[in-house]
Design a protein around this nucleic acid. Structure first.
Lengths: 206, 206, 206, 206
DNA sequence: TATGAATGAGCATTCATTCAT
DNA sequence: CATGAATGAATGCTCATTCAT
């Protein structure tokens, strides 16, 4: 039976297990990660893992939650600044933050992100998508002329997903045909040009 | 010892195994697909599976290869027509073909595509990306004014990947916030607007 | 290190553990009863259980002993009265007492009795058998004509065992084909008729 | 997935597993018998056990069934002869057969019988009880004067259960206070005297 | 060539017991 | 005394792979 960590030591152990989970999944993939590997990596006995987590799946869930929390925290902190940037730069800024996040921690988050994508796409990308949608809305608030854009929900969905997947895929590619700088610049231009063209097409006549 | 199928019967068995693989993975996911399931679904004994494939992984590889072949065949057949369409319509046409392919065969290809993404992304998306890059080039040939576009390789890479992942993710989402029609239209507009804006920005003065 | 409880509080804890043992075994069976369950039910920590009992088996032993003590106490209190009853009524009285004992305490003793039978039949049934044998002897003392009965030890053994097992089995059967009243009456008649017939067969001629 | 044994070799393996089950349970008890022990004793790999049995419980079920089948077969063969014997001798005959059965096979059936009693008393004793009830009825058919006996169902139930449990308990007792011969003779007398006394009490007057 | 019985390493999970606090 | 976190051996069970037929 998994108990709630109430003491300081317990909290540290839970953290160690989650970190071990990231390490193992990054090294061997989700499918090949066993409870024993996680426990060993965390420096504890197998039984102890079950003191804190109901089962293996619960460890993966906690990992997902942790990753989402970190991304969300990072984006929330940056949100106000982002709103004030021109659209292209805003996109670039977000992608740079996101890229740094995935590259950090020995690329473990990146490797886990790839694994998580097809396991549980709703919980994983879901909250992040939601926050990004909010950021888009805030950005529009600061740039009233963008309210003229058509089909904002659909295009937000497309740009957000395209951005997330492109970044994850690019960083995972050992031999990417373009640099990360080119990728972020390209995605930024993509959004920027789209917006510019829409504003042009919907411009009030004379 | 896996042998190359040299006879007609062998070829049929190999096909049956690959099809069974698609069925099993679609029904239960990669992780829960066992050699026994595949063999039973294919209507053969477990031992026979190993006559044609070195191990389970080889079956998955063959499935990947088969899927790629089909997509490539489909796109190659459509390539000439695509080249002649305006850019937005070209994108939409490709995405429609791709969507139909993933939806067909009882959505088995779609389900397998999601699973395959994080297993082996280089072999899976690689050849398709390559072909799409060629199609982009052919399209530019037919639309010489597009040669003025900057950073064509980078932007091709971005649009192609964004397109593939957006479509797979959207079709896999049981509750997508936008319709498939909206998705394809949005992606088409995205490319169309980008190109229009680029042409505008790079227009020779006067 | 299990210590002998020398203080009042210790005695109460030991009792709590034994009672918790009965509750757990009754609820889940011996095989599914864990030290954690017992400790939790007793309202103490797992570690504390080992302050009073060497290991899990020691708890079961104490439970056995406790149960035997209670049965023995109950029978000893009733022994004088039983001796004065006619044989059939004596049997019925004993069986009624025994039945009430097993039914009481939420049937916990009954459930534990069934479990205990095959674990440790010597310690469990032994002392009770011994006491019942004594009661038989006392009864014979009060009914001198019964001294004429042949093979008293063997028949005591048979009747006592038959009685105990029949009662435990009957009460454990969720769908018994006869009522408990019928069972006790039948066992009483069995003994009564046996004795009557023996007296008849061994009657002095003339 | 447990498969039905269709071939000769398979049948032999199933038998080996069941026999191994008897050996292990006799040696270590039900609770301490593991699938690995059974497989090793049967001279096969663990996995093979699961080719023929769904899980461990299925092995125990098969053991129960096997034991019941043998007892039932034995009793059915003896039933006609038993019907013709006087009641006391009939009882003794049955008990002798039963005792021999339990003693045979290295006392393994005896040891398993004790274990089985409290695990699954309905399936285990049930069919045997049913058959014994039939034998009682047949015996009465051959001895019409016994139809005068009162409460035949109740008394059959009592004598049958008393007999089974007394025998199992006696044979399991390493230090029984009476011999098996004394036990069977006592049980036979018990029934014989009961019947005689009943006939006496219910005799038509004058 | 085809088969499927046999294998056993490996997995997730449990639980009696210990020991530092 | 009391605790409960930590332990790891042990369990039931699965499944990729082999090999005798």
């Amino acid at each position: 039976m998994a108990r709630k960590p109430q003491q300081q030591r317990s909290k540290a152990t839970v953290d160690a297990i989650i970190q071990a989970g990231f390490i193992c999944v990054a090294e061997r993939g989700v499918g090949a990660t066993t409870t024993r590997h996680i426990a060993e990596t965390a420096g504890i006995g197998v039984g102890s893992l079950y003191e804190y987590f109901k089962d293996k799946e619960a460890v993966f869930d906690a990992m997902n939650q942790r990753m989402v929390e970190e991304v969300v925290g990072m984006l929330q902190a940056a949100a106000p600044a982002i709103s004030r940037l021109p659209i292209g730069e805003a996109v670039k800024h977000i992608l740079t933050l996101f890229g740094e996040f995935l590259q950090g921690n020995d690329q473990r988050y990146l490797k886990c992100a790839r694994q998580a994508m097809n396991i549980d796409l709703k919980d994983y990308v879901g909250p992040i998508s939601k926050l990004l949608t909010q950021i888009v809305m805030q950005h529009i608030m600061h740039h009233p002329e963008h309210m003229r854009l058509r089909r904002i929900p659909a295009m937000s969905y497309i740009f957000i997903n395209a951005g997330i997947f492109s970044v994850v895929r690019h960083l995972s590619d050992p031999n990417p045909p373009i640099s990360y700088e080119e990728l972020t610049q390209g995605l930024a231009d993509m959004v920027d040009h789209y917006v510019a063209q829409e504003l042009l097409l919907t411009a009030p006549k004379a």
